[in-house]
């Protein structure tokens, strides 16, 4: 069988382009990073209401992304939401114990994310610790209700 080098090269390039495309879809489009799983630092936070927070939402500190929400589950003991955060390993033992977590919204209709604000406690949070001080998501209906009852009371 006669072999054509240009054809073999073409198919090789085609396969390479396919794999490269998949890499682009992974890194550029879905924002995967090459950090190993044990390289991260886990925290838990309980919220009374998470609003529209989704797994994989950003965790930010002063606007800088420092991690992601890895899972959200219902805490059947307290009947609130337990949110598992996965943060950069370099923050381990560097966040004060009274750090607060708040669920914020980017823009008026944008996606929701978790914002961390540091406190002044000398003791630091370690892997698997829980953030005590949390602030739930703002729910539009509750806000309106509050506003209306305030008006009536006045």
């Amino acid at each position: 069988m006669k072999r054509s080098k240009t054809m073999e090269l073409g198919v090789g390039l085609f396969m390479l382009a396919g794999i490269l495309g998949l890499l682009i879809l992974g890194l550029r489009v879905s924002g995967l990073t090459f950090t190993a799983a044990d390289d991260s630092f886990r925290l838990e936070a309980n919220f009374a209401n998470i609003g529209g927070l989704k797994p994989r939402a950003r965790v930010t500190m002063s606007g800088v992304t420092v991690g992601r929400v890895s899972a959200i589950e219902l805490d059947t003991e307290w009947y609130d939401a337990r949110v598992l955060l996965e943060l950069d390993a370099e923050l381990e033992d560097r966040l004060p114990r009274d750090t607060t977590a708040a669920i914020l919204t980017s823009g008026l209709l944008g996606e929701q994310y978790v914002g961390l604000t540091v406190g002044g406690d000398p003791e630091m949070l370690g892997d698997g610790d829980t953030i005590r001080d949390t602030q739930s998501a703002l729910v539009l209906e509750e806000l309106i209700q509050q506003f209306v009852s305030n008006m009536v009371n006045d």
Partner: peptide
């Protein structure tokens, strides 16, 4: 454009 994409696209679930 890129960050809204990266925040919402999940590699396993979507790609």
């Amino acid at each position: 454009y890129w960050s809204s994409m990266q925040a919402s696209v999940d590699f396993i679930a979507d790609v």
